[in-house]
């Protein structure tokens, strides 16, 4: 168990190390001089050199990378080139919108995908199964930003044309101010971010359930006289929690990527839109910060998934 955890932690460290090296050296080989960018067009050579020295950009690359690593480990992500604010603060300001979006979307895709998958698998070939499969196909094919724009058009703009407000156009309202207003503003972004993944969960749940429900122990459970509900949930669904968890680990990690597009469509001031703006402004410390943060999220999600395995599957406990 301990060695299992240690190997997972070592891999997590490796992922973060590779990621940090990737972004750092990427920007090191990048054309354009950050010192020049910071000082502006009119600055003299001496001023640029001064800024370069202040940032440590005149030192050899490996020294720069090591000091960058050292600062990052201490939670210091540097300062924005654009407005000199600490990157950690800029990210923290954008956190609430992205976290609201992410948590809501995860809950929504689980609440949508798993029941559809179970329903589909319980009546294979029926009209319900066909509807479920239709949902899966359309869902996995729907590009996120097309869905977001279509929802805005159909549920925000058309009702407004007709004279009433069904959903707002977007924007983030703080949760603490009024949870209802918050949820109302987040609903369309949640649907947008959740639909594709909900379809993937429905497909996974359907496939796994179909396989499990053919097992002998399910027949035994039925023969014992258990209710169908108990057979499906306690015996069938229980055993597919492991593959679902694997998928969840990978998808929670991908939320940040999907959030970029969703935030863009709905004008949410989250981490994704921060990154897109930073690319426009060539604000490298922010890009590096967001990439590392995303990597950190992914690594943590993977470790949580590994721990959940141990809880969910007694066989894993035995193996390590």
């Amino acid at each position: 168990m301990i060695s299992f955890l240690a190997s997972r932690l070592a891999f997590a460290g490796l992922v973060l190390l590779v990621l940090s090296a990737f972004v750092f050296f990427l920007f090191f080989v990048a054309p354009g001089d950050p010192a020049r960018l910071l000082t502006g067009e009119k600055a003299t050579e001496a001023q640029v050199a001064q800024v370069r020295a202040n940032l440590g950009l005149d030192r050899p690359i490996h020294e720069q990378y090591l000091s960058f690593l050292g600062r990052t480990v201490q939670g210091d992500l540097g300062f924005s080139y654009r407005n000199q604010q600490p990157v950690t603060k800029l990210i923290a300001n954008r956190m609430p919108a992205t976290i609201s979006l992410g948590i809501g979307a995860v809950l929504m895709w689980l609440a949508l995908g798993i029941p559809i998958g179970i329903m589909s698998a319980r009546h294979p070939g029926s009209w319900r199964d066909r509807m479920g499969q239709g949902f899966i196909l359309v869902g996995v094919s729907f590009p996120t930003f097309v869905l977001g724009m279509a929802l805005l058009y159909l549920l925000y703009f058309m009702p407004r044309q007709a004279g009433f407000t069904l959903f707002p156009a977007g924007g983030y309202k703080p949760f603490l101010a009024d949870p209802l207003i918050w949820a109302w503003h987040m609903f369309l972004p949640w649907v947008t971010l959740a639909l594709t993944t909900a379809a993937i969960y429905a497909r996974l749940t359907r496939g796994e359930m179909l396989a499990v429900m053919g097992e002998d122990y399910i027949r035994t459970a039925r023969a014992k006289g258990l209710s169908e509900r108990k057979v499906v949930l306690k015996h069938g669904f229980r055993s597919i929690l492991t593959p679902l968890t694997t998928q969840l680990g990978a998808d929670i990690a991908a939320v940040l990527g999907g959030a970029i597009v969703t935030e863009q469509v709905f004008g949410l001031q989250g981490i994704g839109s921060l990154a897109v703006q930073a690319v426009g402004n060539q604000d490298r410390p922010i890009i590096i910060g967001v990439v590392l943060l995303a990597g950190f999220f992914i690594v943590v999600a993977n470790i949580i998934v590994d721990l959940l395995y141990v809880l969910l599957d007694p066989r894993v406990r035995g193996a390590h």
Partner: peptide
């Protein structure tokens, strides 16, 4: 697989 795809594309 554990690299944030879209963000690295951004970078």
């Amino acid at each position: 697989m554990s690299i944030p795809v879209l963000l690295c594309a951004l970078a």
